[in-house]
């Protein structure tokens, strides 16, 4: 048996009353921005509700981030980025900001019951998995419907699964799930597989997976737990029930901008609109990474976006002081 032990910073930080920069979101974007801001001697706080690395932590293995020829585990990469930021003085608050006031000057928010004021804010909240919005999905969420393979994979040992979406995430995470599951059918709405060929080859070589292309998922069946998925052939119109114990959904991502939608200018999909320096429509508020309009939503791109935002913040604040 092999065990790993995550030693990320305990939550108890003694928050200051004021910061130069608060970064909301501790994924690759936020942590990279923090590295740059801290090195520029800005008093920087990163607020992250989950584990260091954000969505990266749900990716078992990352092979397209440069510098790791053999690949790197998502949680490991997230943790390393956090440590690097902390080394230069970044503070990490684990939790969710409340009572955020972005329009005041300085800006304000409450963290764990304590009010802090801040000169600049970077929104790096990223994305969360998109839902299918079909019958059975919400009812059976946590009862066989899942969006996190590393979280819930172990519950499906010896079971058959359906994955929805043949993009990189769907295929990569399905390969991971086959550590536990005996068989996986990946259902894809489009007539083609979107994932990188190297992943498809690896999935096919397991001998335990198959693709069902050009099929629409109509509903998830089951009363107290998932028993199957109903799909429709988009060519013939024929409906079939695929029996399974679980459904993992990877049909893309949606931005986490709900709490800012009345204040920040968003595009029609809910992503934050920014200029070339990643400034939003509100003075003193930047947005970076997967949450901005037009992002490619790749870790390497998120990292670059964090740098751009941090340098713009530094430039602005140095003019003020």
């Amino acid at each position: 048996m092999e065990f790993s032990f995550s030693v990320s910073a305990p939550t108890k930080v003694d928050l200051a009353e004021t910061y130069d920069l608060v970064i909301i979101g501790g994924g690759p974007t936020g942590l990279t921005a923090a590295i740059y801001a801290s090195r520029a001697k800005l008093k920087t706080l990163v607020v992250e509700k989950g584990a260091p690395g954000g969505l990266v932590t749900t990716t078992e293995w990352i092979e397209n981030y440069p510098g790791f020829p053999e690949g790197v585990a998502g949680p490991e990469l997230g943790r390393a980025m956090q440590e690097q930021a902390q080394r230069f003085g970044t503070e990490i608050f684990k939790g969710q900001p409340e009572n955020i006031n972005l329009t005041s000057n300085p800006k304000e928010m409450t963290l764990g019951g304590k009010k802090v004021t801040v000169r600049a804010v970077i929104i790096a909240t990223g994305t969360k998995p998109r839902k299918l919005n079909i019958p059975g999905e919400a009812e059976l969420s946590g009862r066989g419907v899942s969006y996190c393979a590393t979280c819930d994979g172990p519950f499906f040992a010896g079971k058959e699964l359906v994955a929805v979406g043949a993009g990189n995430s769907g295929v990569q995470e399905s390969i991971f799930l086959l550590k536990y599951a005996t068989r996986i059918t990946i259902v894809e709405y489009l007539p083609t597989i979107q994932a990188e060929k190297i992943l498809v080859e690896r999935f096919n070589s397991t001998g335990k997976g198959s693709f069902l292309l050009n099929h629409e998922v109509l509903s998830i069946e089951g009363s107290d737990k998932v028993t199957g998925v109903k799909v429709r052939d988009r060519v013939s119109g024929a409906e079939t029930l695929i029996p399974c114990a679980g459904v993992f959904v990877w049909i893309g991502l949606v931005p986490q901008t709900d709490e800012f939608k009345d204040i920040l200018k968003l595009d029609k999909w809910g992503y934050v609109e920014v200029d070339s320096e990643l400034r939003t429509n509100i003075e003193g508020v930047w947005a970076a990474g997967d949450v901005i309009s037009g992002a490619t939503r790749q870790i390497a791109a998120a990292v670059g976006s964090g740098v751009t935002a941090a340098m713009s913040v530094e430039h602005k604040l140095s003019q003020q002081s």
Binding site: F3, S8, P10, T11, K12, A51, P75, G95
Partner: peptide
């Protein structure tokens, strides 16, 4: 069960809280 993986960080934070006799839960809560 074993507090491995991410739960090890829960244990670390809990130890600090018990040592202080309090957590960072907001006062009103």
């Amino acid at each position: 069960g074993i507090p491995s993986g991410y739960e090890f960080s829960s244990l670390l934070a809990d130890i600090i809280d018990v040592s202080n006799g309090a957590s960072d839960l907001a006062q009103e809560l």
